[in-house]
Design a binder for these strands. Structure first.
Lengths: 340, 340
DNA sequence: TTGAAAGCGCTAACAA
DNA sequence: TTGTTAGCGCTTTCAA
């Protein structure tokens, strides 16, 4: 007579109690073997328990565990839009980083919508995640929800320091300088900027870096156009830039996606890159490797940032003080700038 | 004297008990007002409870609720790679569909790695998600884990029917036909195919559709090249195709990403699209709108599929029989095919 | 309309 | 080395 499902008299989900009964031990012992502690179990007993677990097809109930332990081993990630390649890559990196540390990731898109962002954060808080990573659409996200929820959080993609909060970001200004200086190195003197729109009153670090580089080189300020960070935003900006009286010979774009849009606008105008207009952009998404010409871009160390962010959450859980990490960017040279 | 945190004597998380005490009611009543049932509560009492909830900053404990109810209102989504724009869009759509129905989404990437896929599925199962949506890297994913876990599941992006399983997919063959016939309509007679590699023995539906269209038109079969579904895969395929003795004048690509790679290979060879080589691809990602030339592509109704998949999960929870839904694709005409 | 209380499955302190 | 048991916070039946 083989051992089958029939041995589970209770029907329905197999619990630790069923395993205990089957193995002829107490439920505590089952816990010990499942969790590898906190008490030792005799090898023979352990084998019996393992066998019972396998035979009965036992799976620990995560909800019960979470209730008891006060932790679901889950983080929440809120990003503006998972369809945006930059955030998609970020989400992937965060998922990897979390998984490596035994945490699952709940994903929530806020679609660049403040109300949705708040709803998402609240929702995650009520789901008792162990921490939330927030890449806000705002430069000053509403942190009160996070504070109230009293769950660790970290601001991603955040250049500015938010006192009392963990944050990890990239040195936007330095990156933009890198880009602009490279363009200057190519001999350009009429360098425009295509800067993404955010809800802050404050100047985007990239805009700042671009201005500084121009100023330091003794160049006059170029035209600046503001539009969304996405492809249509870049396309629109391109049309405006090309229609300007003093058409720029080079453009610094605040995102690769905008650069993709610029490329299209420039092509449609019958002009070419980098001969008529040179471009350097920001982010380092893979798509930029396959555009024509390939994008010279300021690359963000996404994986490192994700690791750092998750570690910050873990540190916060241990009660450590908030940290603010700014990563350096690197200039990935391809051909849109005029190099070859 | 104002009401403050100090009114919570227990310190630490506020529980329903604290609220009950503060409002001078039983814990049951608090439940009734929080959940809007199952019993009615007098307006005055309700107001008192609501007030207490606000004052104390009470947040229901999701883990406890999940334990009691046996549902965490969470689905798991396993995809090969969230950095792939197609899957990113799918993930976004699934997240939206789930959120609309009150479910959160746990995201897991399997990186086209079978072992990781299994680990992810198992992990989700042990987290007691209410269902898992699996876009497998395999044509025949290992369903035993899902079966054993006894949690509802739905296969995404799955053309073939898997008896006993929910699945939603697209009619790959019909889509490929659409694409190929369009190319034929342009007068092409030498049409190659760039088909993605999957782990199945079986022929990809897209390959099938391409063959059929050619055959039905009385055309000889074109060259077929197999390579990964991503950009490098397309690039590699392009180099091989262009180096072939009988260079194709048109190519059907099984993914837009491959088409992006093809575009690069063709450009590097000094040829142009669609003059020297026409292209029609598959998926309908946004990136294809911004390539040069823009991609004519077979578009998948991602959002509809996501809705359908989530509904299938809900149906399965209610004990309904598995369903198999195949969606039709539409040809999105842009310029890579030769139209303008 | 409200309250008392059982119990979801698990962990770990304490007892044996 | 193993067992007993008290809760974790919540929902809901049953009784008042």
């Amino acid at each position: 007579m083989t051992t089958t499902q029939a041995d589970n008299p209770t029907r329905g989900p197999v619990t630790r109690k069923d395993v205990a009964r089957y193995a002829g031990v107490s439920t505590a012992v089952v816990s010990y073997v499942v969790n590898g502690g906190p008490k030792k179990v005799a090898p023979a007993t352990e084998a019996r328990v393992q066998h019972a677990i396998r035979v009965l097809g036992y799976r620990p109930n995560a909800a019960a565990r979470a209730l008891k332990l006060g932790s679901s081993e889950t983080f929440g990630l809120v990003i503006p839009d998972n369809s945006n390649p930059f955030f998609a890559r970020l989400a992937h990196a965060v998922e990897d980083a979390a998984a490596e540390r035994g945490f699952a990731l709940v994903l929530a898109n806020s679609d660049a919508n403040l109300a949705k962002e708040r709803r998402n954060v609240r929702n995650l808080a009520s789901r008792q995640v162990d921490g939330v990573l927030l890449a806000s659409v705002l430069f000053e996200p509403d942190l009160t929800d996070l504070e109230l929820a009293d769950i660790p959080s970290v601001l991603l993609n955040q250049g500015r320091e938010a006192p009392g909060f963990n944050s990890v970001g990239v040195d936007l200004a330095a990156g933009a300088r890198l880009a602009t200086e490279h363009l200057i190195g190519h001999g350009h003197t009429n360098i425009a900027a295509c800067i993404g729109i955010n809800t802050s009153e404050e100047m985007d670090g990239r805009e700042h870096g671009w201005r500084q580089a121009l100023k330091d080189a003794g160049l006059r300020e170029g035209i600046i156009v503001r539009s969304p960070f996405d492809r249509p935003g870049g396309y629109e900006a391109g049309r405006r830039l090309l229609g300007a009286a003093d058409r720029p010979k080079a453009i610094f774009a605040s995102s690769d996606l905008q650069a993709v849009g610029l490329l299209r606008a420039i092509r449609e105008a019958g002009l070419s890159v980098p001969e008529d207009v040179a471009i350097v952009s920001f982010d380092g998404i893979v798509e930029g490797e396959y555009t024509w010409p390939p994008l010279t871009t300021v690359t963000q160390p996404v994986r490192e940032m994700a690791d750092c962010a998750v570690d910050a959450l873990l540190a916060a859980k241990r009660g450590e003080a908030p940290q603010h990490r700014i990563f350096a960017t690197t200039l990935q040279i391809r051909q849109s700038c005029g190099c070859n």
